[in-house]
């Protein structure tokens, strides 16, 4: 998958005729397997812009930086990333007319982060030629919202049951489950990369930064870590777009998507059918942003 030429052409046009002030895409890093988020602000920047198999990042998160300004922004999104834009629009984080969305039909990407780790001597894994782990469960390879589309429509690659792992956990005994989660959360170093990479995390003041009162302690102890992850995951309910960025960026391999998918499953079951950010209808809100008398509450 290489759409560099198409992306450059569109970006040049947009910048040239003043339709946008910047275009968010990617550039190459120091290695073939490294593509990095990149913002082009002028025609001179276009030559650096690329789109290839390593454009794994969900750029929609970067829009939050510009939510208080007025620039018009061109942004390149894959299928999964485009769902993030829907969420931002639903949450009134940015106005639709400020965006020019360049949608890419995605046949799956590879993870530069894993390639970096493997190639830098920190891992025994040497082969990183496969698709990024997050692509294995892809249900939406084609953009759900766009102004211009690049590439041919793709079939979803997702497995028959993307909740298979969730079921495994559900079938554990309470003790087993506790042991499992204690093990994964004890690793957390609280770098907050999962939060920073997340498009659902669009709060201006995060609860974890709140000091009056301080809701969650800053010790890397099992109780504070558990609290952090419980609060984080609950905030994902109805908001997670399954882009997998949180799990991808986690430096200690916490299976965050397993937890997010459990929430996706439950929200779909209780308030669904619902998948966050699959379609943009002006004024539409996710289940937890609205109240309906018919909402299920028998689990309370």
């Amino acid at each position: 998958m290489n759409y560099t030429d198409q992306i450059r052409e569109i970006a040049s046009r947009l910048l040239e005729n003043g339709q946008v002030d910047m275009v968010m895409a990617w550039e190459k890093g120091a290695f073939d397997y490294q593509s990095l988020p990149y913002v082009a602000r002028s025609l001179e920047d276009i030559d650096k812009m690329i789109f290839d198999d390593y454009c794994v990042h969900n750029l929609s998160t970067s829009l939050l930086r510009y939510r208080d300004s007025n620039e018009k922004i061109g942004i390149v999104v894959k299928g999964c990333d485009s769902r993030g834009l829907v969420r931002l629009l639903e949450d009134n984080q940015i106005k639709r007319e400020r965006l020019y969305i360049i949608g890419v039909c995605c046949s799956g990407v590879m993870d530069p982060l894993q390639a970096m780790i493997a190639n830098s001597g920190f891992s025994r894994i040497k082969d990183t030629s496969g698709l990024a782990a997050k692509c294995a469960n892809c249900i939406q390879p084609n953009p759900v919202i766009y102004d211009e589309l690049v590439g041919a429509t793709q079939e979803a690659r997702g497995p028959a049951n993307r909740f298979e792992k969730v079921s495994e956990i559900e079938n554990m005994s309470v003790e087993e489950r506790r042991a499992f989660f204690e093990d994964v959360f004890s690793r957390c170093i609280r770098c907050y990369a999962c939060r920073q990479a997340c498009i659902a995390c669009d709060c201006r003041t995060c609860i974890f930064e709140e000091t009056r009162p301080q809701w969650v302690g800053r010790e890397t102890s099992i109780s504070d870590n558990m609290m952090y992850h419980m609060v984080r995951s609950m905030h994902m309910a109805g908001r997670c777009i399954d882009c997998g960025e949180c799990e991808r960026v986690c430096p200690v391999g916490i299976p965050l998507m397993l937890i997010n998918r459990k929430l996706i499953k439950e929200v779909d079951h209780l308030y669904g059918p619902y998948e966050a950010g699959m379609v943009y209808i002006e004024g539409q809100k996710p289940p937890f942003s609205v109240y309906d008398e018919k909402d299920q509450d028998d689990f309370i």
Binding site: Y38, A193, G217, R218
Partner: peptide, 28 residues
């Protein structure tokens, strides 16, 4: 401004750094 564009301001670089030593003092 330009080079900080991609930075997500997570703490990975500082926590993975062998030299970064900044600390907070907190109470429980």
């Amino acid at each position: 401004e330009k080079y900080s564009d991609p930075c997500q301001t997570c703490g990975i670089c500082t926590y993975m750094c062998p030299t970064c030593y900044c600390f907070d003092v907190q109470v429980k």
